[in-house]
Nucleic acid binder design. Sequence first.
RNA 1: GUCCCCGUCGUCUAGCCAGGCCUAGGACACCGGCCUUUCACGCCGGCGACGCGGGUUCGAAUCCCGCCGGGGACGCCA
Length: 485
Amino acid sequence: MSVRVRFAPSPTGFMHVGNARTALFNYLFARHHGGDFVLRIEDTDTERHSEEAVKVIYEALRWMGLDWDEGPDKGGPYGPYRQSERLDIYREFIEKLKEKGLVYECYCTQQELDQMRKEQLERGEPPRYTGKCRHLTEEEKARLRAEGRKPVLRFKVPEDRVIRFKDLVKGEIEINSRQLGGDFVIVRSNGMPVYNFVVVVDDALMKITHVIRGEDHISNTPKQILLYEALGFETPQFAHLPMILGPDRSKLSKRHGSTSVKEFREKGYLPEAFTNFLALLGWYPKDGKEILSLEELIERFDIKDVNSAPAVFDTTKLNWMNQVYIRSYPIDKLTELVIPYLEKAGFDLSAFDRKWLERVVEVSREYFTVLSDAPHYMEVFLKDDFEVEEDAKGFISENPDRLRVIELFYGKLKAFEGELTEEAFKKLVKEVGKELGVKGKNLFMPIRIGLTGKMSGVELPVLAELLGKERVLRRLENSLSKLRG
RNA sequence: GUCCCCGUCGUCUAGCCAGGCCUAGGACACCGGCCUUUCACGCCGGCGACGCGGGUUCGAAUCCCGCCGGGGACGCCA
C-alpha cells in the first residue's frame, strides 16, 4: 500500500513554526516514499475561522516549497478537504455509533462540568467526566430538554483496557483507558462534531497510512484508537514529533518572540534556509551533512531518525544558514528578493540599471544575515549625499595629512581621463600616497571616509568602479565640505 | 494532582536498539590566532556535555532499578 500522509492545520490566522515543521516532516516522508501529501483544513470550530486564515496556510506552505497533492484548492479523490464541508459524512458515522450503542447524550452544562473539574482537582484527583448522564432515562432527557438544555454526544470509554500503539518515533506506548478522562465529547451541543472524532473519520476515509503530528497529540491517540475500532476502521501508524521549545524550555509560543512563518519570511530569511533549519530540529541525516536542499532532504529523510527529545528553537544557527544560502543564491533571484526591502527603506531604484544593481547585490551580500539587512549595506552604493559619521570626522581631524589625502585624491581624479576601473582607482590612490608620503590606514581610511563617510565597508576599488568617476567626485565634494565646515 | 513523554557541550545533534572502536565526534555560537592597509568573509586552533545514585559486567553514554529535573496532556480547542 502506498504511503499517504496529511497535514491538517486549523486555520488560526498564522502558521506557527511548530506546524511548519510538522508539515515539512509529513512532506519529506511522503516524497521520500513516493506517496501522497494531503492538505486538510480542520475548521470544525467554526466561529474562529476565516478564508483569510486558510490563505495564510497556503502561502506559508508554498513559500517553503511544500506542494500538496490533494487539498481544498486542488481537490482529489477523497474530498472535500475542509472539515466544515464534510458535516454530512460525519453525521453518517455518528449514526453508526448510535446504532451500536457506543455513544450517549449528556446534558451537563458547562458550569456543571467546570464545577466538577474544580472539585476533583481540589481533592487531588485527575479531572475526568464521571459518566453522570450515561444512564439517563427517556423521561429524564425529556425533562432536561424542556429546561432548554441541548445535549452533547459522548463516547463510552471502556472501563479498564490497556490501549497500546507503536509510535514510529517514541516506540511502544501504552495507557489504560481509565486515564482518558472519562467519556469524551464527540459532538457539541450545537451539533458540530469535535476534533478527536472527525480526525479519525477523515484520516480513515482519506486512506491516511501514517499520522505524523506533534507530541502534544500523544494523549489524543488512545481516544482516537478507540474510535477507529468502534467505527471498524483500520488504525494508521503514528509518529509523534518532539516538541519545539522556547529558550526557557517551555512549549514555544508567541511570548518567545518570532514564531510565525510569516515573520521569518518578512525578516528576510530565505525559504531554503528556513526549511533546512527546521528539518534539523528533531531530525539529523545519517551522513551528517547539514546544508541540504529540499531534494537532498527528501532523499535522506527517515522517520526512524527523528529524535524523541524536544528541541529548543534557537535562531542562531538559522542565521548562519541564511548567510550560507544568501551567498550561494542565484544573483538575479536574490536581487529580485532584495528590491522590496530597498524600496521599503525609501530608496528610489528607478535611476539604476538592473545589471548594475545585481553587481551591487553581489558585492554586498557577503555582509547580509537576513535580506532586511540589505538597505543598510547597500546604502553606500545608492545614496551620494551621506553624512560623515562622528568617528570618521574625529579620525580626519586627528591629523591634517588625512584631509590632504582626500583633497589630493579629489584633484587627481578630477584631472583623470577615462573610466574609473578598479585598477585606475588603485593607481590614483598609490600616486596620492607617494606624493604625500602617506601609506596604510592613513592613506586608505581618508579615502574611504571621503567616499562613504564611514570607517568600514566594502572594498574601495570595487565601490569606486561601481560608482563611476562622476559619482565619486560628487561624494568627495560632499564629504570635503562637511569635513572642512 | 494523575497519566504520558523526555534528559549527551550554551544550542542543534552523532553515538544508545545489537556494551569495548568514546581520551564522547560534528555543526552553530563563543574565545584566540592567521589572512586582509577597514569591517565582514575565509583558514587554523581553543573552550565546552554523557542529570544524580545504585546495580549487571572484565568493561556502560550505551542494559536494569531508583531518584532528581524538564516538558506535555488531562475542554462542547485543534
